[in-house]
Simulated assay, not measured.
Amino acid sequence: MSEINFTIRPYLDMVIEQDKIFLQRLGKRISELRLRYKLTKVQLAFEINTSESNIRRIEKGQINVGIITLNKIAEVFNISLSELVRFD
């Protein structure tokens, strides 16, 4: 069993690293949109019915955001969900 874990570990590390990068890019995108719309973290949190600390963690890429929350964020910025996760 330990051989299997040893052989797939580099792959899992790579996947986890890709997830971290995605969450960081998503957080940066949300932060940029929030600033563009001149919203504070507290205001955005109020709009999507969450806490300011959750917004802070989202913007830092520290949590995996659910699809419902992402959709609410997109609605606040009047953009589609696909536009929210587009990192051009």
Rank of each mutant, 00 (worst) to 15 (best):
Gln43Val: 12
Asp13Gln: 14
Ser82His: 05
Ile73Val: 12
Leu39Phe: 11
Ser51Val: 09
Phe22Ala: 08
Met14Gln: 14
Ser31Leu: 09
Phe87Val: 05
Glu59Asp: 11
Glu47Gly: 04
Ser31Val: 06
Ile73Arg: 01
Ile8Thr: 10
Glu59Ser: 04
Lys41Trp: 04
Thr7Leu: 11
Leu33Ala: 06
Thr40Asn: 01
Asp88Pro: 14
Lys38Asp: 12
Glu32Gln: 12
Leu44Asn: 01
Leu23Ile: 05
Val42Ser: 07
Ser51Leu: 10
Asn5Thr: 14
Asn64Ser: 13
Ser82Phe: 09
Leu23Phe: 09
Arg9Thr: 06
Leu81Met: 12
Asn49Gly: 14
Thr69Ala: 00
Leu33Glu: 02
Glu32His: 04
Leu26Pro: 05
Ile68Pro: 00
Phe6Gln: 09
Lys60Leu: 13
Leu35Asn: 08
Asp13Lys: 15
Glu83Cys: 04
Glu3Lys: 10
Arg34Lys: 11
Arg29Gly: 00
Ile16Asn: 08
Gln62Pro: 01
Gln62Glu: 14
Tyr37Val: 09
Ser51Pro: 02
Arg9Val: 11
Val15Tyr: 07
Val15Ile: 14
Glu75Val: 03
Lys20Asp: 08
Ile16Glu: 08
Phe46Trp: 03
Glu59Phe: 01
Leu12Gln: 05
Leu81Lys: 03
Lys60Thr: 14
Ser80His: 03
Gln18Val: 14
Glu3Ser: 11
Leu81Ala: 07
Ile79Pro: 06
Asn78Val: 03
Glu32Ala: 08
Tyr37Arg: 03
Val76Phe: 04
Lys41Thr: 08
Ile4His: 03
Leu70Asn: 02
Leu35Pro: 04
Asn54Ile: 15
Arg57Trp: 05
Gln24Ile: 14
Lys60Asn: 15
Leu81Gly: 05
Asn54Thr: 15
Leu44Val: 13
Phe6Ser: 09
Val42His: 12
Leu84Ala: 03
Thr69Asn: 02
Asp88Lys: 11
Ile79Gln: 02
Glu3Phe: 09
Lys20Gln: 11
